[in-house]
Simulated assay, not measured.
Amino acid sequence: MEPENDTRISEFLLLGLSEELKLQPLIFVIFLSMYLITVCGNLLIILATISDSHLHTPMYFFLSNLSFVDICFTSTTVPKMLVNIQTQSQVITYAGCITQMYFFMLFTGLDDFLLTVMAYDRYVAICHPLHYTIIMNPQQCVLLVLFSWILSVLVSLIHSLMVLRLSFYTQVKISHFFCEINQVVHLACSDTFINLMVIYFASVLLGGGPLTGILYSYSKIVSSISKISSAQGKHKAFSTCFSHLSVVSLFYCTSIGVSLSSAATHSSHSIATASVMYTVVTPMLNPFIYSLRNKDIKRALRLSNDQLSVH
């Protein structure tokens, strides 16, 4: 018997990473640990950049914004997953699913745009060092971040409104640990052609555009570094880009990996497992990447720790 079609569906079922009951406690502990590490690590980066006046520069302003976005990005999906495991429930309300989808796309877009802005900042610093303070003035930095927010909000809003026009069966099971837009759209029982076209167009434009900007910036950076005569100068110039380049590589490699795996396999659980890399692991590793090889961040963290010890 066909399930009844209902445009006023009240809830979805999130199947998570595994339906094996024995694995649920292990999954809960792993994801809770990763979530706490992500929040604490990124909060430390934010506190360090605020407390140390030496870090009041465009590069660390963008980094603190990226850390804030990473906290929000992970908080959009993981807490709901942990609650569902703890309560042994797979339910997410229709409104909750649309809200989660909106904020997930919002913070994904912000991650993408902020990484592009940070690449532009490194490009100006290395290729136009004499004009750096003029080009990357405080007003310009705020405008770049504001533009990233506005564009991400608009794109997320369009996607969410497009999903609201769809109708679903009464029992909708999502083989994921959060409401991923592609899966939700494919589960609709109404025509999804326009939705899919908007998703593909936005993916190409907002995924390919920033990536092209990043690659262009680094092609100019590599060209400028190659013209530096001293090995020490080359090393110093490259070291200012290493952390950002590592984060960019991690973000795009994991995102592209998920896209390729979804195209190559029909297993939704495999796609959900692969998604963990860029939704949870990448935001968790970002603070470590930026702090381990960054003397300024290390110094600021030590000063913050000393101040806390005194108090």
Rank of each mutant, 00 (worst) to 15 (best):
F201G: 15
P283L: 06
F147M: 15
S246G: 11
L215Y: 13
M197P: 01
G233R: 06
L151F: 08
T7W: 12
T254E: 08
H54T: 08
M59C: 06
S309Q: 11
T108H: 03
K295M: 07
D111R: 06
I256K: 10
Y278E: 04
L143E: 12
F288D: 05
V247R: 01
V258W: 00
T99W: 08
L285K: 01
E180M: 09
V248E: 02
S239W: 04
T170R: 08
Y169C: 14
S190P: 13
F31K: 01
V83R: 13
H244V: 08
G96N: 06
L245N: 07
T273D: 09
P283A: 11
V91F: 13
V310C: 15
L151A: 11
F288L: 15
V185Q: 06
A263P: 02
A95C: 08
G16A: 07
I71P: 01
E4I: 07
I194F: 15
I85L: 15
L250G: 04
S249V: 10
L211H: 05
S255I: 02
A95F: 06
T133E: 13
G41I: 02
F193R: 14
G208S: 11
K236G: 05
K234Y: 03
H131L: 11
S223A: 09
F104S: 02
L303V: 08
S275D: 08
T74V: 12
Y35D: 03
V198Y: 10
R302K: 12
L36G: 05
L144K: 05
I30M: 11
F113W: 03
F113P: 01
T57I: 04
L151Y: 07
T265F: 12
V124T: 05
V185A: 08
F178E: 04
G96Y: 05
A263F: 12
S10M: 14
N305H: 11
A300T: 00
S156P: 06
S255N: 09
C189Q: 10
Y278G: 00
C141A: 12
M101Y: 04
G96F: 03
L161D: 07
D121Y: 00
S53K: 08
A263E: 13
S156Q: 12
H244D: 09
S230A: 07
C141P: 01
L161H: 10
T212D: 09
I92V: 15
R293Y: 10
D52V: 00
T170A: 09
H266Y: 10
S275R: 03
V276M: 10
V78Y: 01
L26V: 14
L196N: 13
T38G: 04
F68A: 10
S51F: 05
F103V: 05
D52S: 07
H311D: 13
V69G: 02
S160D: 09
D306T: 12
A263Y: 12
F201R: 12
Y278C: 06
I85A: 07
M105S: 02
S156G: 13
C72S: 15
I71E: 00
A264D: 09
